[in-house]
């Protein structure tokens, strides 16, 4: 290709990266800005973070978010890993059905998922008197959208490992349980950890499904941010948003480090 178009392409790419980062930069910048409103830089301050720390609403939202993310991630990681183990051993025909089932929550828009769960909970509540909207219904909802992602990541790991290793263990007399405990499981651990991190960030960042399945007193950080934006801004929101950005970015970078090897392999032609 000639150099001129390459230069043009490069300039376009640079502008696009700037475009992708502009929202993050402005939120982070404003979280340290002395001026409470507006974009003008009035000097560096940490006071919004201090205010946030002393804000009861933000604290309880943080507690809810953390509890929700930890419990739902634990449940979805266990279920997703089990599913991936069975899936990797299932026959081709079954495997097709399972992947079909797993892709439904991935494809269905989150708002449809949110409202369908809202209706489902209300119907079950009429019959059985359970599923009052609150943290429990949110946990059930979060596990549902996390589960396919955990299963997909763990399965990618399982199918990527050499079957000869398990066969070797079998030849050496290991029973199925030992083979699982000492061979398959340790090999799958990076995949399981990556799946869990992914599930955790998905839960922490989710707004739409939470919005429809939450009840009074189960406000999470994204819901708190949404209601502050709707009510008119308080400057602490920039600080809260910055913390949320940091949490999800750190989570993702860790995940990339865990499964980065595979990413490199896929992205460099051999």
């Amino acid at each position: 290709m000639n150099n001129r178009s390459s230069l043009f392409t490069r300039a376009a790419a640079l502008l696009l990266v700037l475009f992708l980062y502009a929202p993050l930069i402005i939120v982070i910048k404003n979280s340290f800005n002395e001026a409470p409103f507006g974009l003008e830089w009035k000097g560096f301050t940490l006071k919004w973070y201090v205010k946030l720390w002393n804000d009861d609403l933000a604290r309880s939202a943080l507690k809810n978010s953390a509890l929700l993310a930890i419990v739902s991630t634990t449940v979805s990681t266990i279920l997703g890993t089990l599913l991936a183990l069975g899936w990797s051993r299932a026959s081709a025909r079954w495997s097709k059905w399972i992947s079909g089932l797993l892709y439904i929550p991935v494809c269905v828009p989150d708002i449809v998922m949110g409202v369908s769960l809202l209706l489902f909970y209300s119907m079950v509540r009429q019959w059985l008197g359970i599923f009052q909207l609150g943290l429990l219904t949110m946990i059930l909802a979060h596990v549902t959208f996390q589960l396919p992602f955990v299963a997909l990541v763990v399965r990618a790991r399982l199918t990527g490992t050499d079957p000869a290793i398990v066969e070797a263990a079998e030849d050496l007399g290991a029973n199925p349980w030992q083979r699982f405990l000492y061979v398959t499981f340790p090999l799958a651990v990076p995949g399981i950890a990556a799946g869990a991190l992914l599930a955790f960030t998905l839960s922490l960042d989710d707004f739409v499904v939470s919005f429809f399945t939450s009840g009074p007193g189960s406000t999470t950080l994204p819901i708190l941010i949404y209601s502050s934006i709707k009510r008119g801004l308080s400057p602490e929101i920039n600080a809260l948003s910055t913390l949320l950005i940091a949490a999800s970015v750190i989570g993702t970078v860790f995940m990339a480090l865990l499964e980065g090897e595979k990413l490199v392999k896929n992205s460099t032609p051999v």
């Binding site: 929202p23 993050l24 948003s241 950005i245």
Partner: peptide
């Protein structure tokens, strides 16, 4: 990977 809500608010 950062929050969609936050990015929308940033715009």
């Amino acid at each position: 990977w950062s929050n969609l809500l936050v990015r929308t608010f940033a715009w």
